[in-house]
Design a protein around this nucleic acid. Structure first.
Lengths: 229, 229
DNA sequence: CGCTGTCTTGAACGTCTTCAACCATAGTGG
DNA sequence: CCACTATGGTTGAAGACGTTCAAGACAGCG
């Protein structure tokens, strides 16, 4: 039983009626995860739909080679585990807290009941799915770019479009990613990422800060696409 | 106005009631595309939901560099343009007939009316979206593999799982892909793909046929993952 | 203080791309 | 019938690029 006000903060439930809101607040749970804490594991059965209210989660797989590939950085407002719940498959990847997280958890049965009882949420779900598809599609495009430099540039630009905050020519991307995580997103080794990012830092194109990246020369960053190291 | 029997062949509409079926057959159109014919272009407004009844479509983008990246090979029963219709964005990629195609076309307004009138189809749509998400996720994983050889191996294996037909140890993948198209799916150059596929052909691991690929040694193909050229 | 984790740099090696040429096939028009 | 063109496949050689391995810097934390 949680505060209905919390529910109103979740975009997909924001326009529910009072009754639905009440119903949800009865059945839902809040969970907290500290940075680095696992949320679920690949292969687990999916028992809950988890919606990030605060913080950030990382969805990733570890290949046999030990290489980690990052399927997505999930921002607050988005759900994880939802697809598995919808199609009844086991979880296809791991998730962990990428920042301290507050998560809104709906049990599988509750989730499905919600869908049946309140068809209005179905449309929010579809909207969410299409958003996620777009981000996956962009990821595919990024990974298809030739040259690690191009891929990193694309990655930063897509973050820039999604959650960047423009300030006098520069764009702030408030996502903290380690070099290794960038490597996991663009399909490259950490050393390669470091070499490229260091150069960009020296050249004043992109600066790495504690809380994310500052793209100081968006135009120059864009030029990096389609040319070698 | 088309034959209701055609509609029953479409998985997502197969369990509609008579009334819905009739309604659809009134409003829907059938279209034909010859191999190689464009179906729509990136940036176009999305006016129809197109469901492949027969044949195969290729969804792809062309990067500035001229490189073609293939987002998906759409099999019969699946829809294209649906996501854009759902979230109201312009089409994010091109589509063309990859074989001669028969396509079931629903106008945007009809499609949305259908969703409103018959909530049952909403669930088919969600199932479709989750399937497409899975295939995109697998594509991301494939592209993240290091080494072109690994990626091609992964690609063939995923086709094998999705539409492969097992026969006495071998697996037939009934999808005709040119070397260039494989290159477009794994993010590599055509020459590299040729060299690898030729070697596999010589070694009796995978054979290229007119109508697809014959994976003669699935185990050996799987071993190709995670090791260099 | 020593540990751990992230970041960093250098050098050697291997893979992939690039460019260039060539073969085979099918379709076209003279 | 034959040149002519287009398309897809193929091969070789050179060089660019990324990985790999090895080593060290640096900060945070027990």
């Amino acid at each position: 039983m949680i505060d209905p006000d919390e529910i109103r903060k979740i975009p997909r439930f924001a326009n529910l009626g009072l009754e639905e809101m009440q119903w949800l607040s009865d059945k839902a749970l809040l969970r907290h995860y500290k940075l680095g804490e696992p949320i679920f594991f690949e292969g687990d059965e999916c028992t809950h739909c988890l919606i990030i209210i605060q913080g950030e989660a990382k969805v990733f797989k570890v290949l046999e080679s030990g290489r980690e590939i990052i399927l997505g950085i999930i921002q607050s407002g988005e759900a994880i585990g939802e697809v598995s719940l919808l199609d009844g498959t086991h979880l296809p990847a791991n998730a962990m807290a990428h920042k301290d997280c507050t998560v809104f958890a709906l049990e599988r049965e509750v989730y499905h009941k919600l869908l049946k009882k309140y068809p209005a949420v179905v449309h929010s779900i579809i909207r969410d799915l299409t958003l996620r598809m777009r981000s996956l599609r962009i990821r595919v495009e990024t990974l298809s770019e030739q040259g690690v430099q191009s891929r990193i540039s694309q990655l930063l630009q897509s973050f820039s479009r999604e959650i960047g905050r423009s300030t006098s020519g520069s764009v702030m991307v408030p996502v903290r990613l380690s070099r290794g995580e960038i490597a996991g997103m663009v399909g490259a080794r950490i050393e390669t990422v470091i070499r490229i990012m260091s150069r960009w830092q020296k050249e004043g194109i992109v600066e790495t800060l504690d809380n994310g990246f500052l793209i100081k020369e968006p135009a120059k960053l864009a030029e990096m696409v389609g040319q070698g190291d």
